[in-house]
């Protein structure tokens, strides 16, 4: 698993062996949990909120993560590289960009479950700008979220923000892709 993961993911990941990265995260976790507990003991009312918020997000992860991961696994075995390249690859143009945003805007879970999806799309030959558009749409124009926005902020605010977001995200992704590919060219084959 690891060597394969190393060579087809973006290249910074190859430098550190996986167990060192893992231990870094566990160490941070071992550090932050006592801090959270200490704060909770000193300020009981804040502690209650910390526990409640953490629980809410933990449950959200539990409900959504397995499903999205399974979806990603199925996608990676059933959808061929050719299909991804055709619709989301470097030749997909504006339509690919819009399709990526549409895919990202479908009702879904928290942003972090989209990251392995994005990595898988890159491995399958999707264009960097499209993956960035997919992630951005996932983050800020999710359909259920827009319903809440419409309800509270009114149609004028929502429509303006949505329109500006789609345009600017598109432009931003194309620019960001150029920057991303500046040093990267020829180094590895993952970016189609």
């Amino acid at each position: 698993m690891r060597p394969q993961n190393g060579h087809d993911s973006p290249n910074d990941m190859v430098t550190a062996p996986w167990y060192r990265r893992l231990s870094w995260e566990w160490m941070m976790l071992a550090l932050i949990i006592p801090v959270a507990v200490a704060v909770s003991l000193i300020f009981p009312d804040k502690g209650e909120r910390i526990a409640e918020v953490s629980k809410t997000f933990f449950l959200e992860m539990l409900y959504i993560l397995p499903a999205v991961m399974v979806l990603m696994g199925l996608f990676s075995v059933w959808v061929s590289k050719d299909v991804v390249v055709k619709y989301l690859g470097s030749g997909s143009g504006l339509r690919g960009l819009l399709l990526s945003m549409l895919l990202g805007a479908l009702p879904t879970g928290p942003l972090y479950v989209a990251f392995p999806m994005g990595a898988m799309l890159i491995r399958k030959g999707a264009r960097i700008a499209n993956v960035m558009a997919f992630l951005s749409a996932w983050a800020c124009i999710k359909i259920p979220q827009e319903m809440v926005e419409l309800q509270f902020m009114g149609w004028q605010f929502t429509a303006t923000r949505l329109l500006l977001t789609v345009i600017l995200v598109g432009v931003m992704c194309l620019l960001a892709e150029r920057v991303y590919l500046l040093r990267d060219q020829g180094e590895s084959g993952h970016s189609s």
Binding site: I32, A36, K46, V53, S54, F57
Partner: peptide, 19 residues
């Protein structure tokens, strides 16, 4: 692969929003 990072983020968010 993602689990430790996710747990870390969840506790960090809890701590942040709590404070």
């Amino acid at each position: 692969r993602m689990l430790p990072a996710i747990l870390l983020v969840i506790v960090a968010i809890g701590l942040f929003l709590g404070l």
